[in-house]
Structures are given as structure tokens and as C-alpha cells.
Design a protein around this nucleic acid. Sequence first.
DNA 1: GAACCTAGTGTTGCACTTTT
DNA 2: AAAAGTGCAACACTAGGTTC
Length: 257
Amino acid sequence: MTARAGKERVTIIEIAAAAGVSKSTVSLVLKGSDSVHPETRDRVNAAIRELGYVYNRGAANLRQARSNIVGMIINDLTNPFFAELAVGIERSFQSAGYVPFIANTAENPVRQEEVLKSMLEQGVAGLIVSPARGSRPDAFRRVEAAGIPVVFAMRRLPESRIPIVAPDNHRGAWLAARHLVERGHRRLAFFGGSADLVVYHERLEGFREACRQLGVPDRDVTVCEGETHRKGGMACLDTAMAGGAPPTAALCFNDAV
DNA sequence: GAACCTAGTGTTGCACTTTT
DNA sequence: AAAAGTGCAACACTAGGTTC
């Protein structure tokens, strides 16, 4: 017997018939149950190999009323940081038996809404979201109401109760600014980021606080709000360098800037 | 053509039966 | 009595059939 080509997929019913057992026994073998006799298990595994059976996750989800898919909704996958983050999360999921389903919203709340709807339809087991700029807390009400666990990554939404995993932006920016001062810089700049992001305010405040505490006068601190990507960084650089006493070092809002 | 009904899809979990 | 295996309902949805 060989695997069928170009026909509908092999099911456990066919495996059961080939191995001379019931489909329940095949199911037990697939789950690695030790209540199946080793000889029977070998027969079932041989039938699986011969017929080219592939586990049907969709059918299993139908019975279990849940899936092993976890949605990852990223606000900007062109940002290398988020690509790196996605790889890290994917690695953790893999070892836990989950499959990530990644979507990029490109900072568009409308696109984010479509993606959330699609994820709900897929019956995802959970969601990790880096919210698009301009997202409102009620955008996630439907997901919460469906009882799907959600966690925000990197960005928080004011007034949202959804838990978040994020770095200590204030402290991070403070330490980065201190590093520059310790290297002898006295004219500092903060490049990129926009005021509608909570993260921006946290990082900027950390930066400003360090400057104050470490004796960098306000007149020597340049803050340039701008886009959170490469062009935004270039624009800030041009603006800062055009002045009479340009900064000698800058803290950038993110990797892309 | 609309509205409704039925059968079928693949897998799991539990109660039950058979075998040793 | 314990181990091994079986039968069947359930899940959400769709395609196809039937009736009006």
C-alpha cells in the first residue's frame, strides 16, 4: 500500500481499517497513550507511514473547541526590533506546542480591527498584540468578551486593563543618557517618536530626568519629535545639525530611527 | 428562489465491553 | 481484576437535497 496522490487526505478511519483497530485506538496512539499495547501501536504506526497520514488539526480543534494557534499582531514588521521579537516569541511557542499566526497592522487601527476579527474566526488560543498607533481600548473588548487571553507587548494603551510585557522605558532612557554623559558628551539630543505614544513620553521623561540630574543644561538638550522609522531619524538629524551648537550625541527612540 | 432539513466532515473523551 | 480496545455522541460548518 502506498500514499495516495492527488486524492483527498487520509483519515484515521482509514488508518484504523488498515491496522485492524478502531479509530479510538488510532487516536490514542496519536496522543502517545500508554494504554495501547506496543504491538497494536506498532501496527497503527506502520499504517500511518504506509498511507501517508497527516494529522488533521482542524478536525481535532472541531472536537476540542479550541486551537493551538496563538495570534501575534505586530504594529510594524518592517522594524527589525519587531521581527526579532516575533522570532523570540515563535521560539517559545514552538517548545510549548503552539503555532504562531503573525499579522502586521502597519500602524493602521482599521487593519488591526480586521486582523482581530480574523484571529477570532480562527479560534486562536491567545493573542500577543503590539497595538497600532491610535488604537482605542474598546478595540479589544470583543476579544476579551470571547474569553481569549490577550497580552500587550511593548506598547500600553491608556485606560486598558490588558496586561503588558514591556521594558522599563523610563529607566532604560535614563541609563542610556547617563552612558552618553559618562562618555563626556554635554550636548545631547533625543531623536524620533511621536507624542501620541505613551512609550515616547516614558522614554523622553527618563532622558530629560537624567540630563537634569547629571548637570546637562536645558539649552544643550535637543528634542526632535518625528516618525519612528529611518526617514524620521534622518529628518531629526538634519534639523539638529543645522543649529549653531549641534548635539554631539543622540538617544534614538528606536532601532529604526 | 427561499427556507429548511439532512448527511457528512475528522477527531476526541468517556462509558462500556472484551480479553487475558 | 486489570488491561486493552470499542462505540458513540459531540463539536461547527457546508453541500446537497427537498419542499413550498
